[in-house]
Design a protein around this nucleic acid. Structure first.
Length: 556
RNA sequence: GGCGCAUUCGUCUAGCGGCCUAGGACACCGCCCUCUCAAGGCGGAGAUCAGGGGUUCGAAUCCCCUAUGCGCUACCA
């Protein structure tokens, strides 16, 4: 029987080393711990420092375009930790949103607004952020430049960072020289030991420069990742990274770290692409004299063929998944399982259930391949089995309205088209994989007149056109006295009709199906007839009969 | 090249030294239901647990090496 350790030991045993903490062990989801003799251990959260009463996590995207699915997944885990796991343990849990717009070259004008919009659509709610404010405002880094510059100056004053005057051209030349000699590339620390008076003079003269971190050249740094365990890196392999750029903007390394500290972030769940720079961050925290947060690096999402997920494979941004008709709940369920599991068999987790079940202990360190087929299955499952009919009706409506099939207001229950929309949705929902499939499937049930279709479809296999026509004429004649609301009765009547005409039920039913919908595939015939209704059926049958008049029987 | 991370059915995963002749799900195949197509139900095939060494009475589970994949190696995040 293994237990989660008594909690991380945060004692610092080396200047540049985080206190050792054992990687978290998963809890057993069943078994002996429930015995009455076992005193209930106080619930603890891995990575939480003693004395800290709550969890504060963040999602810190940069507004450089549309949000990638991977960023959202990472943000979701943060959200689930704060709003789910932490709160279940009776802790305060705050999830915040911070915009990291420190790259002026990649900045995209409306990206931040779109970001908030799509994150809200997805279902993430933040307690502090650029739109809602909070105790640590502003939550946009470009509005916090003075803070970062002050911190950088502070490090320089303490000798833990230094100004570097090397031009991009020199840096490139250095790199090329290293490459041609087969050496590891990297900054050669040319300005690391400039005399202070010289550096000051050049700055005073207005010479452009960056601020670099004076990385220790000896020892090693340990990053304690909560799911991976300790990751040790020799300091010699680390670079003197740029902290502050020539334009006065901070790099990610400086900005995120200062803000995480100021905003009292307790857990940093971020993409695995940050593992290589995590030692730098640990060193930076030490240089500032700050306690670092707990780290969890979650794997990046792989593309079906290997490599990273790109346009070539399908949707990659949140916005694309939305327009393709995916439900945020289904997307969240699928994404959650791409690197996390609850047990051996449970796979359906609504957002509420995720908040109840999610725990960082069960996060996986290995990368997962994105499977569009499985996502579609989840989406279909939510459409068909999880959403209520009224909910689904409301979600399908915008897609149908965009296709011009219903009025934009038809989702309102007092709208004249609403009843039909709802009935059609009920009838067709089991074949919708995405909301975007709705126009294709519901079309025949919503429009007045059918779009043109292949008249040959009206003649079922092994059936003469004349027989199909006779069947439809009889059905049309029978229509006024049929009670379509009583599906069983209508079925009995039409089965009898088939027998009278000497047709197999399949033959008659198929002819009717095509006449009613223009297709050979539809929901059950009698539900189909009921929803389309007598008026439209009358017109469609008449049209079908006219079409059949132009098709001659095969002369045997 | 250097540094790092990862490695159980095609894919997502369960597995924490004996419950594993490896469980579940997607996809695939078959059957059932049936007026078509879906949905649903039932069943099947599919992983010698990357390979090789150890440790142990016993290893998918612990250790080491190798291989492969991925990431980082920017005044991008």
């Amino acid at each position: 029987m293994r237990h989660i350790g008594p909690g991380p030991d945060w004692s610092v045993d080396a200047p540049y080393t985080l206190g050792m903490q054992t990687p978290i062990a998963p809890t057993h989801s069943h078994g002996e711990t429930d015995r009455m003799t076992t005193p209930a251990a106080p619930a603890t959260l891995p990575g939480l420092r003693p004395g800290v009463s709550g969890v504060r996590v963040r999602l810190a995207p940069s507004p450089t375009g549309s949000v990638h699915i991977g960023n959202v997944k990472t943000g979701m885990y943060n959200w689930l930790l704060a709003r789910g796991q932490a709160r279940r343990l009776g802790l305060d849990g705050q999830f915040l949103l911070r915009i990291e717009d420190t790259d002026r070259n990649r900045y995209v004008e409306d990206a931040a607004d779109q970001l908030l919009d799509i994150l809200r659509w997805f279902g993430l709610e933040w307690q502090e952020g650029p739109d809602v404010g909070g105790p640590h405002a502003p939550y946009v880094q470009s509005e916090r430049l003075a803070i970062f510059q002050e911190r950088a100056r502070h490090l320089v004053a303490e000798g833990k960072a230094y100004p570097c005057f090397c031009s991009p051209e020199r840096l490139q030349a250095v790199r090329e020289g290293q490459q041609s000699r087969g050496e590891p590339t990297g900054y050669d620390r040319h300005c690391r030991d400039l005399p202070a008076h010289e550096a000051d003079a050049r700055i005073a003269a207005g010479e452009g420069h960056v601020i670099r971190f004076r990385t220790p050249r000896e020892g090693e740094t340990v990053v304690n990742d909560l799911v991976r365990g300790p990751i040790t890196t020799a300091n010699v392999t680390l670079e003197d990274s740029v902290l502050l750029k020539t334009d006065g903007y901070p790099t990610y390394h400086l900005a995120h770290l200062v803000d995480d500290h100021l905003m009292e972030i307790t857990h940093v769940i971020r993409g695995a692409e940050w593992i290589p720079s995590a030692p730098l961050h640990v060193l930076l925290y030490a240089a500032f004299g700050w306690e670092p947060p707990a780290f969890i690096h979650v794997p990046i999402i792989l593309a079906p063929g290997g490599g990273k997920l790109s346009k070539r494979h399908g949707a990659t941004t949140m916005a694309e998944f939305r327009t393709q008709g995916f439900l945020p709940e289904a997307l969240m369920n699928y994404l959650a399982l791409l690197g996390w599991s609850f047990d051996a068999t449970t796979e359906i987790f609504t957002p509420e259930e995720l908040l109840e079940k999610f725990s960082i202990e069960r996060l996986s360190p290995s990368p997962a391949t994105f499977d569009y087929d499985k996502l579609r299955w989840f989406n279909q499952h939510y459409i068909n089995h999880i959403l209520t009919l009224d909910d689904l009706t409301g979600r399908v409506a915008p897609f149908l309205a965009a296709a011009g099939m219903i009025d934009a207001e038809a989702a309102r229950t007092d709208h004249p088209q609403h009843a039909l929309l709802r009935e059609a949705t009920a009838l067709l929902k089991d074949r919708l994989e995405t909301l975007a499939d709705a126009p294709e499937h519901l079309g025949p049930f919503l429009v007045e007149a059918l779009p043109d279709y292949d008249s040959a479809l009206l003649v079922p296999k092994k059936t003469e056109p004349s027989a199909a026509r006779a069947g439809l004429e009889s059905t049309l004649a029978l229509l006024p006295e049929l009670d379509l609301e009583d599906e069983a009765a209508a079925e009995t009547r039409l089965r009898a009709l088939a027998e009278e005409l000497g047709l197999k039920t399949g033959q008659l039913f198929m002819a009717i199906r095509v006449a009613a919908t223009g297709r050979t595939q539809s929901p059950g015939l009698f539900g189909t007839l009921r929803v389309i209704g007598k008026d439209r059926l009358q017109a469609r049958f008449a049209d079908a009969i006219a079409r059949l008049g132009t098709i001659a029987d095969a002369t045997a």
